[in-house]
Each structure stands twice: as structure tokens, then as C-alpha cells.
């Protein structure tokens, strides 16, 4: 395997994200935009995937709720350093968080899956069958 191969993928991903930084999709339907955790939303086929960077959480500190087209991600991030320590540098932050997001498409609430791995939260939202685009054959 070439050393540069996985980085080519990353490079493409970074460029794709750059060009979307000013996308207006969802812009009026997120609450707490700029809040924690930062969200990236992708489409995969017909489905939608929300990806968030949230290192150092415990699964039971994360609460994901869905109602209609709105997803809410909430939780608490806390840290402990132990007793008798002297802190040299502190950059990690703690606190409560809550974000909600309204999707412009209908989702199948029964098939939503959420995964938390390596500090990344991914919520898979399958598009409702009746909302999927259909191609129309020209007669």
C-alpha cells in the first residue's frame, strides 16, 4: 500500500468540505449552530448521516432524541484529573450541551442508528421510503 493513498482520500474530503463551508442547507433549521458538538452532515445514497466530534464522552452521557424531522443531541462532558495534581496546561473544555437539527427530508424514525466510536458520534438517518426520489420514465 502506498503511503500517500489514504491521504489522497483525506485531501479530497477536506476539499469537498471546504467547498461546503458556506452551504445554506440547514442553515435556518439548526439550533445552537456553533455549539458543541460541531456537526457535519453528509448524504449517503438516499440516507443522511450526522457526524459529530465529541471525544471523551461516555455512551450513557449522550442522549439522542428524534421527533418528526427533528433530531436532538444532548449530554454532558466532564473531566477528572484526580487528586493532588498540578495543572500545567488546560485546553479541554467541559459542560452541558444540546443541539437540535431539523432535516429537510422525511426520515424513517424506526430505522435510525447511532454509533459512538473513537470519540466520534455518527447518527444514521434512513430516508423514509415514501420520501425517496423516484425517476419518472418518459412514455
Amino acid at each position: 500500500m502506498l503511503y500517500s493513498d489514504p491521504f489522497e482520500t483525506l485531501m479530497q474530503l477536506q476539499q469537498a468540505l471546504d467547498s461546503f463551508r458556506s452551504s445554506s442547507w440547514l442553515s435556518t433549521s439548526t439550533s445552537g449552530a456553533g455549539g458543541f458538538p460541531p456537526l457535519n452532515v453528509f448524504s449517503k445514497g438516499d440516507d443522511i448521516v450526522i457526524v459529530a466530534e465529541a471525544p471523551g464522552l461516555k455512551k450513557d452521557q449522550l442522549d439522542i432524541q428524534v421527533k418528526g424531522r427533528t433530531i436532538q443531541i444532548a449530554g454532558v462532558k466532564s473531566l477528572s484529573y484526580g487528586d493532588n495534581v498540578s495543572l500545567h496546561r488546560r485546553e479541554r473544555t467541559t459542560g452541558r450541551f444540546s443541539r437540535s437539527l431539523s432535516l429537510p427530508v422525511e426520515i424513517d424514525a424506526d430505522k435510525i442508528k447511532a454509533e459512538y466510536r473513537d470519540g466520534m458520534l455518527a447518527v444514521f438517518l434512513p430516508r423514509a421510503e415514501h420520501d425517496k426520489p423516484r425517476s419518472i420514465k418518459i412514455a
Binding site: 442553515s27 456537526l39 457535519n40 448524504s43 449517503k44 443522511i48 448521516v49
Partner: peptide, 10 residues
């Protein structure tokens, strides 16, 4: 994955 909306760089 195709990006639809982004808030943080990867």
C-alpha cells in the same frame, strides 16, 4: 459520503 452541511474541518 457527500457533504451537505459542515461545521468543522476534518
Amino acid at each position: 459520503f457527500e457533504p451537505l452541511y459542515t461545521e468543522y474541518p476534518i
